[in-house]
Design a protein around this nucleic acid. Structure first.
Lengths: 228, 228
DNA sequence: ATTTTAAACTTGTCAGACCAAAAGAAGCGA
DNA sequence: TCGCTTCTTTTGGTCTGACAAGTTTAAAAT
């Protein structure tokens, strides 16, 4: 038996959704029904449903029949949080993750400077002000993430928005550590201001550069804190 | 029962690995043993192992006890292929995915132009030649992907390499469709040459630009093929 | 017609069983 | 003693059956 049974069932059900025969919100057959349809035992059916559920394709509550649901970018990336935690634990893992985030955010800043509308810029300025006026550490973190998220939103691509949120979550620990060095808020806000100004002036290279410097600073402070 | 049983078991086992009590290659207890340890039924244990397995944390073959393994970037992204297929099916899904790939590849090209060593450039040129001399369609696709992969490798970041491979897989369909328009290999090779030259000359902006033009062309041809 | 209540599902979990594949032990031959 | 083959044990993959707990649905009562 080369191909496992649950895979067969999972792929078949997946096709039902992909082909549009089952639309989001529709109710799936009950487990016992699927058992009959595929001539399989309940374990196999359950494992198949389990896979699809973990993929965000369907939600199932006890007592109720499973329903088809739309996978969101956030949900997809959230599923990665487990593996990512381990990946970061590897020797080179964190550095690679930091580089990956940098490539994303720098690219987003560059693009934002190109396509930002007046409304985008206004929203970004609001986020910047909120960050500048943060009263405590927690509020500062929150508005910091919000500022970066606002930049991601300008791309109007939910993948970028989701990735941005995911990175913020994955590297949260880095943020906390870095703050322990006594980094003053003003430094970070100054970087943010530079980024904002470049985007406002529709200067792609300036925005990319400012974001690059910002992230380099964050990474530098983190490693200082760790190695101290 | 708010927290499901398998989650409890999965998290516990995950901790064993993360804390280093179980190192890669080590053998996990058998399912029946875990049943006793956690006072759980076999279904719950299997679901827990299932999650960890899909996260690339352990591999299990029939007849053999599960072993701890190191999650690779490729494995992590491969796990996403299911959800991604659905995501692409959404109205804006494919366009967003194309944009995401563009941001990645352009960023990689830019960085490659900065950090590429002579050995990197030599390897890239070899990949370019292989692409230029491809005899049939399949060979052309393969060397095409290999060329892009070579650029990703220059970053020396396995996340980028894995993402690159994953995108190539996810957007494979696009590649095929686009080829149906009768695109001549020479056009693609010319783009590749431009990218290579820029990287060879350590010209980041030139490399980014060339890659941008290349991908825009690919996307344009794809939509032409689809709408025809 | 609206609310209440009870019956009929459905999932979550457990238990025991069987099969085929893998691993380990025993035996055999050199 | 060492290497190979055979046989037993262990293990994951799957099936069946069962029960508790939650959800739907339909009947019943108001």
């Amino acid at each position: 038996m080369a191909r496992k049974k649950y895979q067969e069932i999972a792929e078949h059900l997946e096709l039902l959704v992909l082909s549009g025969r089952l639309k989001p919100g529709d109710r799936l057959p009950a487990e016992r029904q699927i058992m009959e349809d595929f001539d399989a035992g309940r374990s196999s059916v359950r494992e198949a449903l389990f896979v699809l559920q973990r993929q965000g394709l369907l939600t199932s509550r006890p007592g109720a029949v499973p329903r088809v649901s739309v996978p969101t970018a956030e949900g997809i990336f959230a599923e990665l949080s487990g593996p990512v935690r381990h990946y970061i634990n590897r020797p080179e893992g964190l550095r690679e993750m930091q580089d990956a985030r940098a490539l994303l955010e720098i690219g987003l800043a560059r693009q934002a400077a190109i396509v930002a509308t007046d409304a985008d810029i206004a929203a970004l300025e609001k986020a910047l002000d909120a960050n500048r006026n943060a009263k405590d550490l927690e509020q500062f973190f929150q508005t910091d993430v919000a500022f970066h998220f606002q930049i991601a939103k300008i791309s109007r691509n939910s993948i970028f928005a989701g990735l941005n949120t995911a990175f913020a979550d994955w590297l949260k620990n880095q943020r906390v550590q870095s703050a322990d060095t006594g980094t003053s808020f003003e430094d970070v806000v100054r970087y943010h201001s530079n980024i904002f100004e470049a985007i406002k002036n529709h200067d792609p290279e300036g925005a990319a550069n400012a974001m690059d410097l910002h992230l380099q600073d964050v990474v530098k402070r983190y490693w200082q804190a760790v190695l101290k």
